[in-house]
Structures are given as structure tokens and as C-alpha cells.
Design a protein around this nucleic acid. Structure first.
Lengths: 211, 211
DNA sequence: TAGATTGTTAATCGATTAACAATC
DNA sequence: TAGATTGTTAATCGATTAACAATC
């Protein structure tokens, strides 16, 4: 297999931001856009915008700029958003329920099919979303094609649960438990570490009037 | 005022990680730790650990390492976690409710006092947390000392609501609406952008077997 | 055509890593 | 004392920015 130049984390983290403003621009019926205008919207430099995009191909035209819809579609493809991913949630507490019911994910191509927990009582989710016991997980995954698992358990059990789900073949984890999940090289994990974000808020707040 | 060398975002983002493992070490009754061991726990280099910490002071001892409790306390101070911050949540939807009820925040010194929304019906929160109407916000903030506002509204109104709260004197915002809130230089904002994290997960997943 | 703007190469800047004297 | 480990200076590496030829 051809060795691809791997893309830096920094570049990758900016892609969703380009995608977001292109969505907005499309919504506003803007047809074309230059790297300079993009850069102003995001507080980047125009150079950086062009460098970032050139990692993935030549999407613009000299003297013209970028076609909004075309560029959006390209980034959509790069990010792999051009299809539906089936999702389960493990952990039916408040965060699990909130995530299962959040409409935004469906719009972005992530469909929550079911929520799993030890007990199913008291878990309220939207129409069409199943609430099942952990003991039913293995059978469920055999019968349903699921690609993403949201971990919304207590931090004490997050690692165990994730390992269990990994053993059943799931390769993508979105972790909301307050710990960094490391599950090995053969799966992907995105951690949403709310505590760390809160700590950063505290730091910035404390230093607000220091400079 | 003395011009301080400002600390880079990269360094700051690592501080909460040091704090987290120090908490764990304290829990396990570990008394001292070296930069090498810290670095292995976090997948950093030992050099980086020492560089990072030396931005804030000299916390270690040659030939010994760092005292776990002392270092934890120091980072606690740097981050400004050594006191309670009062918090309100604006937006009583599922995410707002989940955040209001999440116990973790209280443990970390962030106490949610009240949830505000247009309507108060159907908002369930834990004991001691008030559910109030947006129209009561101004009066409430005049009578209660609140430092942090969690924005848990729809993205369409997030900016308006935040500006409104800012006008009432709040200077720290934790934003869960799927947009980057820019509120000016005189306040601090931490954005939790779940969509962007989800996009990154999709990208990593898509490229899992590419290299 | 002339002005605009790309994609890319080169220059700069900043962050990470390595090395080591100081010293517990 | 000898081994360990810090804090810091210097070297390296990578990311950002600037510049510009190509060209729509």
C-alpha cells in the first residue's frame, strides 16, 4: 500500500470548522468564497486555509476562489460524513439519555438505535430508539450493524464496558466518561473530557484581568 | 503591571491532565513521582513535563522528583480550582438538565444553583437547584453571586442569550450549543463542540485501516 | 486584458526534545 | 558518597506565515 503523508492533528481539527462555515455559507446562498474570506471568518490566516486544503487536493480555481457547495462536499467526503453511521449508547443516565435524544446527531448522519444499561427502568428516549439491558448487547450487535458506541457510563466502569463492546467488534468509541479511554491501535476513540474543559474555563477566568 | 510571559495554549491544555493523574496518584497513596513516570502515564516526554511545570514555578527537588500532594495543590492553584464557583444553566432541555444534575461538577468546585428557560414546565433537576424563567434572570443575578453561565440552548439563540447574560455581568461561559461563541475580549468562553468531535471520530474511523 | 486568487516553495516562528550542570 | 532527577539552555523538529509564479 502506498505510504500516504499523514495529516497532522492540527490540520484535522480545523476541518470541521471549515465544514461548519461552508454549511452556513451554503445556507445563505453564497456561491464562491476565497481563502481570505474563510480565514477572516475563522480567525486563521489565508495561507493556513490554503495549506490545510491542499493537503487533500486542489479544490479551488486561480482568480476565482472555491465553489462553496463543491468544497463542502469535498470536506464531507474527507471527513466520511457522506453516509449514515449506526450508533448505540451504553449508559442510560442523564447524559446517556440526553445524547440518545439529541436531534443534531441524526442530521449529521449518526443514528442512535438503542441505549443499553444494567436496568432499563426510568430511561426515556425518543420514538424508535430501543432501551435494552446490557445482557442483550451481544445478541443485539449480532443482528444489527452498529459502527459507533457512545460511552456514557460512570468513569469507574467506562474502560471495562468499552473493552467489552470492543470485543464484540465495534471500532469507534465516543467517550463522555471523565477519563481518557485508551483502547489500543485497532479502534478509534474520541474523548469529550468535560472536566478538562471546565478546568480550562476556570484558568482563563482566573487570568482574565491579569495581562 | 509586570508583563508576564504568556503561557501557550498547548501547555494549558496539558495542565488538567497532570491534575487528573495527580488526583489518581494521591488516591493510591503515592507520595512522590518523577517527570519520567508522569510522562509515561500521559504519553508525553519527561522533558515536556519538566518544561510545562517550570512555566509556573519550581515544584520539584533534584534527585527526588515531585511530591504528589504538593504538586497537585500547586496545579489546583494555577487552574483556580481552589474555591467554589457558582453556576447557572441557561436552557432546560435534555442537555441543560443533564448538566445541571451532573454530580461531577460539584466535586470539582462548580455548583449549579439554577436553570433558566422560557418555560419552566417539564424541567427536572436535583434537590436545591432552582428552575426559573428567563424573565427572572436579571433579578436573580442581582441577588445571587454567579460567576459561570452554561449555555445549553439551541444554536440559533445561543449568541443572543449569551450577550444578554454578559450584559448582566457574567464573565465566564461554558458553551454547549453547536457553534463557536465569540463574546469579546472581556469575557472567557470554553466551547464544547460535540459536532466537531463527532466529525473527528468519523474521520479517524474512516481512516482506521488506511495506513 | 487586468485583477484576483490559487497551490506551493521558502522563510520564519514556536514548540518539543535532548543534553547537562546543579544538587538532593 | 553515588545514583537520581530536577530546571534550564541549546538543538531539533514541525507548523505557520510569507511570497510568488501560474493562471483563471
Amino acid at each position: 500500500m502506498i505510504k500516504k503523508k499523514s495529516i497532522s492533528e492540527n490540520v484535522l481539527r480545523r476541518l470541521p470548522k471549515y465544514y461548519r462555515i461552508l454549511q452556513e455559507l451554503e445556507h445563505e446562498n453564497v456561491k464562491k468564497i476565497s481563502s481570505t474570506v474563510i480565514s477572516k471568518m475563522l480567525n486563521f490566516t489565508a495561507s493556513q486555509v490554503r495549506q490545510d486544503l491542499s493537503n487533500f487536493g486542489e479544490f479551488g480555481h486561480q482568480g476565482y476562489g472555491y465553489d462553496v457547495v463543491y468544497l463542502k462536499e469535498q470536506i464531507n467526503n474527507i471527513l466520511g460524513l457522506n453516509r449514515i453511521h449506526n450508533v448505540i449508547v451504553v449508559g442510560g443516565g442523564r447524559i446517556g439519555q440526553a445524547l440518545a435524544n439529541y436531534r443534531g446527531f441524526k442530521e449529521e448522519g449518526f443514528a442512535v438505535l438503542a441505549v443499553f444499561d444494567i436496568k432499563t427502568e426510568g430511561i426515556n428516549v425518543g420514538e424508535g430508539i430501543k432501551v435494552l439491558k446490557m445482557s442483550q448487547l451481544e445478541a443485539y450487535l449480532k443482528q444489527n450493524y452498529v459502527e459507533v458506541c457512545i460511552i456514557a457510563t460512570q468513569k469507574e466502569v467506562a474502560k471495562d464496558v468499552a473493552d467489552q463492546v470492543k470485543a464484540l467488534g465495534i471500532k469507534a468509541f465516543w467517550n463522555f466518561a471523565p477519563c481518557d479511554l485508551s483502547l489500543g491501535e485497532d479502534v478509534v476513540v474520541e474523548n469529550i473530557n468535560m472536566s478538562e474543559s471546565l478546568f480550562m474555563l476556570a484558568y482563563k477566568y482566573k487570568n482574565l484581568n491579569k495581562e
